[in-house]
Simulated assay, not measured.
Amino acid sequence: MFKVLFLLFIVIPIAEIALLLQVSEVIGGFATLALVILTAVLGARLVKQQGLGAYANVQQQMARGQLPASDLFAGICVIIAGVLLMTPGIMTDVLGFMLLTPAIRQKLAKALLQRATVQVQSGGMFSQQSTQQQEQQFDPFAGRTSGHGQSQRDEGNTTLEGEFKRKD
Rank of each mutant, 00 (worst) to 15 (best):
S146M: 05
I80C: 09
V83H: 07
F126P: 03
F97P: 04
V94I: 09
P68R: 00
K110E: 13
L84H: 00
L99A: 01
A69Y: 00
V94F: 11
A103I: 09
A109D: 10
Q114C: 10
A142K: 08
T92Q: 04
D139G: 04
T145K: 13
A111W: 05
A116N: 11
Q132T: 13
V120E: 13
Q119P: 03
K110H: 09
G147F: 08
R115Q: 12
A103Q: 05
V120H: 13
K110F: 05
S122Y: 14
A103C: 03
D71A: 04
G124E: 08
Q106P: 07
D93W: 05
A111Q: 00
R144Q: 11
P68E: 01
M98Q: 08
V94R: 01
G75Q: 02
P140F: 06
A81Q: 02
T101P: 04
Q150G: 07
I80K: 03
S127E: 11
Q106W: 02
V118H: 14
A116Y: 05
T87R: 02
G149Q: 05
I90N: 02
T131H: 14
F73C: 07
Q121V: 10
L85G: 06
Q121L: 14
L112H: 06
T117W: 00
T92E: 04
L95E: 02
I80P: 15
A142T: 03
D93F: 10
